[in-house]
Nucleic acid binder design. Structure first.
Length: 532
DNA sequence: CGGCAGCGCAC
DNA sequence: GTGCGC
DNA sequence: GCCG
């Protein structure tokens, strides 16, 4: 199964295609652009950490052996490449074979706008199944429809005639069902399935329940079976005391139902961000706080706001209780209205010991388990101890621009050494992250998450606590670019990370790097990287 | 027929 | 462990 | 819903 349809995007390279980087304000963050930020990165502080300072050749630091795909003794990798070769061949033969009827060849646009009608239809189908998954089947239907909605947009031809269908057959992901729906769309301009799903009153009711934040398919179905059909019903039930069993978060979700549906302008997001960032600097001098998510990807409007906090003095740890202090201050200033999660240090006191929301049985290195340690070098940081791991907060923020409106906000703090991975994850989008992680695991044999990139076979990847911390360590990356490099992928700017297919192997003709791990080898490499 | 990312928090 | 969200 |  090919994760990366490089063969689709490759066609763009030989055309007049040029990606126009949007000049939207603040689409940039130092995390992503090594050329500008690298010099400033305080790698030198981390004497014990040994961070790589610049992007280097994979072999220089990664415990990775490079093997020709054809000689790899790994059935998964083999299958991926054989399937890919087959598709490329059939693609070539079908395009040279004069079956260009029904195809309008256009110079590719900037990755969007093509086949928009069909894409929208598939997106609708995805949403209808996503918002109302009545069985577990629907979840994956929605997933696949969503992927294909993205993929039709990246084709190098416009689908205007059903004679193009045989050609679609060669493109991965377009099976019978989807091709038939495209056929129907070409003939009638609509899709009966969509109409049918939209008509279904049960689905419709579940759908409106699911739109309540913290209500998913299970609780949604429950509510509908209890007789609730609309948000009004639910509110009525709540006031009558029929729904006391709902979680605290569900009550907030019900209260903010309309507000959470709405999207914000970039300027509102940036103003909220300023408030959070300013407060953050007061609470934690020297902190680097950045707005992530769709804002960083440059979208014209955003559904929520994501803020990532880092501090260069906390390389392997995070300042204990700092996130809680920040939240507390935002509450006091009236900006933060509700908490959807609790965080250490959030309630009074402020030394970060009163709330034990983080469990001690967490298994992984660099995640949990408090360590002793005081004494910061910087004056303002003296109040903070070290917490071994990241923490995240979800809450509800009062709009500074639209009085009375309530906005979803996520704030996360990570150890500085995880900054590249955290910013990748927090930038998204969701499909892009899933694609990247699938690629990591299936093509590279590594596990990617917001904390690092872990060669499979290590203790981390096996979900075990490491006695020897080195065995659980991530491959190091100081910038997002390094992560792409480690995975052998073309770099993608945040604004380009907009789909599952936005991931492209660095040079398709080059050998494929896969991980051939040996426990001792990993240990040795890690030692080299982290201590040397 | 199994897989489709990988994780943290609330309950 | 399940449900939910990111 | 599609793939292997």
């Amino acid at each position: 199964r090919t994760v990366t349809p490089a063969w689709i995007l490759a066609q763009f390279k030989h055309s007049s295609f040029r990606h126009q980087e949007p000049t939207l304000d603040q689409c940039w963050t130092g995390l992503a652009h090594p050329s500008q930020k690298r010099k400033a990165a305080p790698d030198t502080r981390n004497k014990g950490g040994g961070w790589i300072q610049k992007s280097r050749n994979l072999h220089e630091f990664a415990p990775v052996t490079v093997v020709k795909a054809s000689s790899v003794d790994n059935p998964m990798i083999l299958r991926i490449h054989q399937a890919k070769k087959k598709r490329i061949q059939s693609q070539q033969s079908s395009s040279s074979g004069g079956d260009s009827v029904g195809v309008v060849k256009n110079p590719p646009l900037c990755n969007r706008g093509r086949n928009e009608g069909i894409s929208n239809m598939l997106k609708q189908l995805s949403n209808l199944h996503l918002e109302c998954p009545l069985g577990t089947m629907d979840h994956w239907r929605a997933y696949h429809y969503g992927l294909m909605a993205g993929r039709v947009k990246q084709l190098d031809f416009e689908i205007v005639d059903e004679r193009v269908l045989p050609r679609l057959q060669h493109i991965q992901g377009f099976g019978d069902s989807i091709r038939n729906k495209i056929k129907e769309y070409l003939q009638t301009g609509t899709c009966q399935k969509i109409k049918e799903l939209e008509r279904d009153p049960y689905r419709k009711a579940v759908q409106s329940m699911i739109k309540i934040w913290s209500i998913g398919p299970i609780k949604g179905k429950e509510l509908v079976e209890l007789g609730y059909r609309t948000i009004r019903d639910v509110r009525k039930g709540l006031s009558r005391g029929e729904l006391d069993g709902l979680s605290a978060n569900a009550k907030i979700g019900i209260d903010c139902y309309e507000d959470f549906e709405e999207r914000m302008s970039r300027s509102e997001v940036s103003q909220i961000g300023d408030i959070v960032i300013r407060t953050c600097r007061q609470v934690l001098p020297g902190a680097e706080a950045t707005i992530m998510g769709s804002y960083r990807r440059g979208l014209p409007n955003c559904g929520d706001i994501d803020v990532l906090i880092l501090h260069p003095d906390f390389v392997e740890t995070t300042p204990k209780g700092a996130l809680g202090r920040l939240i507390r201050m935002l509450h006091q200033s009236g900006h933060m209205l509700h908490d959807l999660t609790s965080v250490d240090g959030m309630t009074a006191g402020g030394n970060g010991t009163e709330l034990q929301s983080e469990s001690d049985d967490s298994v992984f290195h660099s995640r949990s388990s408090e360590i002793e340690g005081q004494g910061e070098t910087s004056m303002g940081l003296q109040k903070y101890g070290h917490y071994h791991g990241s923490s995240s907060y979800m809450g509800v923020f009062a709009s500074p621009t639209d009085a009375g409106k309530r906005r979803r906000i996520d704030i996360k703090i990570y150890p500085y050494q995880e900054r590249a991975f955290a910013s990748m994850y927090f930038t998204g989008n969701g499909d892009f992250n899933r694609s990247m992680r699938l690629w990591s695991s299936k093509a590279r044999g590594m596990t990617l998450n917001d904390h690092g990139l872990f060669p499979n076979g290590t203790d981390f990847a096996n979900g075990k606590e490491s006695v020897d911390k080195l065995k659980g360590a991530s491959l190091p990356a100081a910038t997002e670019e390094d992560i792409f490099e480690l995975l052998g992928l073309e770099y993608r700017a945040p604004s380009e990370r907009d789909s599952f297919d936005a991931i492209v192997e660095k040079s398709t003709s080059q050998p494929v790097a896969i991980v051939e791990l040996d426990k001792g080898e990993i240990h040795h490499e890690m030692k080299h990287i982290w201590i040397d």
